[in-house]
């Protein structure tokens, strides 16, 4: 039986992890490779690296990091952040990334999804969508959720699937950082309407939040950052709790 995935997300700036504190057992928790290996051993099903650097050197630094991760880590990982061309994607995949995620660049140029899918295949193209509810309607936001657009979430998700993306990573800006639970109502609609896997993101705070997003939100995977980075929750314990609630997980 296909299991639900738990995905820690690592924010990367200039080749280093941005968050991550309570890792006294790691020599260097700022080293994404060491942190990634830690999560892989702890039972993470997949990893996401989100690059937030803004330097000229970012492409090269990120490609080197991807290669080091691929050398060391034996679970799949996705790389996102500022990817806007098939040249960017080619470099990351050739250095060992399993999937890449695009976000703002896809909203600005939806054709990019078709182009990447035809070149690299659906299986490695994730479209990340950041959205926020404005006057009762979910609107897609750009640049890490800062810039609102007129694009409606569910229509955009339908277009993303139709253009061939293999997966959708949905972050609710209303829930992100609140630790009050995932946007399960929107997730449930996305997961029911779409026929590609949906990754839930934004709002993880307790074990119950994960149970709820898999059961009520019907998410295929759940992504979180701070609850893992600050050691508020151990992945092994989370998975035991999920299993107790009859959510299929890899143990």
């Amino acid at each position: 039986m296909l299991t639900k995935r738990i995905i820690p997300c690592l924010d990367i700036k200039d080749g280093r992890t941005v968050k991550g504190v309570n890792f006294v057992d790691l020599r260097d928790a700022g080293d994404p490779v060491e942190l990634a290996a830690f999560y892989a051993d702890a039972g993470a099903d997949e990893l996401v690296f989100l690059d937030i650097s803004a330097t000229e050197e970012r492409r090269k630094t990120l490609a080197e990091l991807v290669r080091r991760v691929a050398e060391k880590v034996n679970i799949p990982f996705t790389v996102g952040g500022g990817i806007s061309s098939s040249k960017d994607v080619d470099l990351l995949l050739h250095n060992g990334a399993d999937k890449i995620s695009i976000n703002s660049s896809a909203v600005k140029n939806p054709q990019l999804i078709d182009e990447l899918v035809s070149k690299f295949g659906s299986q490695c193209i994730v479209v990340a969508i950041d959205a926020k509810k404005i006057n009762g309607e979910w609107k897609v936001h750009l640049v890490g959720g800062k810039v609102p657009t007129e694009v409606e979430l569910f229509q955009w998700a339908a277009e993303v699937e139709q253009r061939g993306a293999g997966e959708i990573l949905f972050t609710s800006m209303d829930h992100d950082g609140t630790k009050n639970g995932f946007a399960n109502e929107a997730l449930r609609r996305l997961s029911t309407e779409r026929n590609i896997p949906i990754i839930a993101s934004g709002g993880a705070g307790t074990f119950q939040h994960f149970v709820d997003t898999f059961k009520e939100g019907r998410a295929d995977a759940a992504l979180a950052a701070s609850v893992f980075h600050f050691r508020e929750m151990e992945i092994s314990e989370l998975k035991m709790k999920l299993k107790q609630h009859d959510v299929p997980v890899r143990l």
Binding site: M1, T3, R5, Q123, D220
Partner: peptide, 30 residues
């Protein structure tokens, strides 16, 4: 949902390729 993405179990294992691998172990598929 298509594609299938994630960890599923393998079962009814035959051949030396699966020496010392138990039924229902998890493997990653896309």
């Amino acid at each position: 949902k298509v594609p299938q993405i994630g960890w599923n179990t393998i079962d009814q294992l035959k051949s030396d390729l699966f020496n010392n691998i138990a039924d229902k172990e998890y493997i990653y598929l896309v």
